[in-house]
């Protein structure tokens, strides 16, 4: 995958994520929320169409900081952070003075994407509660994440929780190894997308799915550039 194609795909996927977020906010009955997010929707449309992407990314980044200030932090935790990181890296990829710096900016996004899986796998695997399946049982038993009451029933299936917990930890911690081969990376990204889909369905983390998906082209490009 070429640098230009990776950049364009990242922009298009991020535009989808940003439009989805903006539309949800604009449905709010709260005064001012629709007005705050209308510019994001317009800019996301421009980004999807490839209109002045350098300026649009910079404007979206400025808007993202304004929103961060408005909510005194992220509205949607990690997905807002990944969205902003994509915007920072895209802005750098358009505005850095040298081609090498532009490439470095997109490579930084790919590196952070890899770390996002590896680090969250590591922090789980060092915790005995995750290794025994207790932590995942607790997520279903009493955390605020399950989207419906009946999902709490999964907490009563300890063997399933232990197996699922180990599958998640091993996938996350071994994810960086997939960088060594393009087929392994493609397969890993499919599994990763399925993981985010499951999180969206079970825990309502739909914005994570779109935000992480937007970062995938950067990793495919970096793999081809360094290992191809």
């Amino acid at each position: 995958m070429s640098f230009d194609l990776a950049l364009r795909l990242t922009e298009a996927l991020l535009a989808l994520a940003l439009a989805q977020q903006a539309l949800e906010h604009m449905a709010s009955p709260l005064r001012g929320e629709a007005a705050l997010f209308a510019p994001r929707l317009a800019l996301a449309a421009a980004l999807a169409l490839g209109v002045a992407p350098g300026w649009v990314c910079a404007a979206l980044l400025a808007h993202g900081l304004l929103v961060l200030r408005r909510f005194d932090g992220p509205y949607n935790g990690g997905s807002d952070r990944m969205t902003l990181l994509c915007l920072i890296c895209l802005t750098g990829a358009h505005w850095a003075p040298e081609p090498a710096w532009r490439a470095l900016s997109l490579a930084y996004l790919a590196g952070q994407l890899t770390l996002s899986y590896a680090i969250s796998g590591w922090v789980k695997i060092v915790n005995p509660d995750w290794r025994t399946g207790r932590a995942l049982r607790d997520v279903f038993l009493f955390s605020t994440y399950p989207v419906s009451g009946n999902l709490r029933g999964f907490a009563g299936r300890p063997a399933l929780m232990r197996a699922t917990g180990w599958a998640v930890m091993l996938f996350e911690i071994l994810f960086p190894l997939s960088f060594l081969h393009p087929a392994a990376l493609a397969a890993s990204l499919v599994v990763a997308a399925a993981f985010h889909l499951a999180n969206a369905a079970l825990f309502g983390l739909n914005r994570f799915f779109w935000a992480w998906l937007a970062a995938y082209p950067s990793l495919l490009w970096l793999q081809a550039r360094l290992m191809g």
């Binding site: 989805q20 539309l23 949800e24 906010h25 449905a27 709010s28 909510f71 932090g73 992220p74 509205y75 949607n76 935790g77 605020t144 399950p146 989207v147 419906s148 009451g149 009946n150 889909l197 969206a200 369905a201 079970l202 309502g204 983390l205 739909n206 914005r207 799915f209």
Partner: peptide, 30 residues
């Protein structure tokens, strides 16, 4: 706003695209 007792598979899939209330609940938890 306690969570619903049950969601169908179709509702879960639809929420991938449209879930303003759930995201507001996550923000309120933050």
């Amino acid at each position: 706003r306690p969570p619903p007792a049950r969601l169908t598979a179709a509702q879960m899939i639809a929420r991938l695209f449209w879930s303003p209330r759930r995201n507001e609940d996550l923000y309120l938890a933050s």
